[in-house]
Nucleic acid binder design. Structure first.
Length: 247
DNA sequence: CCAGACGTTGTT
DNA sequence: GTCTGG
DNA sequence: CCAGACGTTGTT
DNA sequence: GTCTGG
């Protein structure tokens, strides 16, 4: 799956990779080495501009954990951080977003954990691993808008934009650590993936790819990343691998 | 008809 | 054990 | 995903 | 919103 990841890609990096892109300079796209569920996630998506009718590609933050538009409150979103690719076009919570509201979420890599059993001199603990391809991973996501009815129409906080990351069974090196992994979109397929008017599920499924064709680099890192309060590039430093899963 | 659900993941 | 917060 | 919190009433 | 279960 994908429940924590690293995001240091700047808007300028994305322009280099994908071409023209709009973003609000007032938004802070601060790098994070420990993006957690409910955090704002920088994402690329395409929307029709209300004013001009023009299709605009934008870079904007989305809250991680999809809240369907019909939810009574946004609290359930924290569990909707992933959507299974196998069923994403059927599940009521995701199918509409799959057809018309897709995004990509740039990531440097993501974390998975394995439990290390207790021994005589210490308790059991969770060992984090960092999985990456060596370049920017464009994770495939969906997004949704939720209207907060407790707020006035003109309140900018009346609309909550949320997102989820699509997953599939993990293969190769990634599969050694965990049985699910996030899917990605190749740079050449981004235009198709983001197009709101491309709605055929079969065509869309063909655009979903395993990062690095499943052959990811795997490294053990410090358990400091376990706490969502930790952050900084030092979280990616090498650590001993107690389970021998790294390559 | 109305009421209630609607999601993923873990573990070896 | 199970839910909430980050 | 992991860490951290979990609470109110009864008075057999 | 839309489907399922009763």
């Amino acid at each position: 799956m994908c429940g924590r990841f690293v995001s240091t890609t700047t808007p300028q990096d994305l322009v280099g990779l994908l071409g023209e892109l709009r973003w609000d300079p007032a938004e802070a796209f601060a790098p994070s080495w420990n993006v957690a569920p409910t955090d704002p996630v920088p994402a690329v998506l395409e929307r029709v501009d209300r004013e001009t009718g023009e299709l605009v590609r934008q870079f904007r933050p989305l809250r991680w954990g999809l809240v369907p538009s019909w939810s009574k409150d946004p609290s359930g979103g924290a569990r909707m951080i992933n959507a299974r690719s196998e069923t994403v076009n059927e599940k009521p919570a995701f199918r509409k977003a799959f057809a018309t509201r897709r995004c990509v979420i740039p990531a440097d890599g993501y974390f998975e954990w394995r439990e290390v059993p207790a021994e005589a001199d210490r308790k059991k603990y969770k060992q984090p691993y960092f999985l990456s391809t060596g370049s920017v991973m464009l994770m495939a996501g969906l997004y949704e808008f939720w209207r907060d009815r407790t707020r006035a129409d003109d309140d900018p906080a009346a609309w909550l934009a949320t997102t989820t990351i699509i997953t599939k069974d993990a293969t190769d090196t990634a599969g050694r650590v965990h049985d699910r992994m996030p899917l990605t979109i190749a740079p050449d397929d981004v235009a198709s993936w983001l197009a709101p008017d491309l709605t055929d599920p079969d065509e869309l499924h063909h655009l979903l790819r395993r990062p690095g064709d499943g052959a990811l680099r795997v490294r053990a890192v410090s358990t400091a990343v376990n706490s969502v309060r930790s952050n900084g590039p030092e979280l990616l430093a090498d650590a001993p691998d107690p389970l021998g899963l790294a390559d």
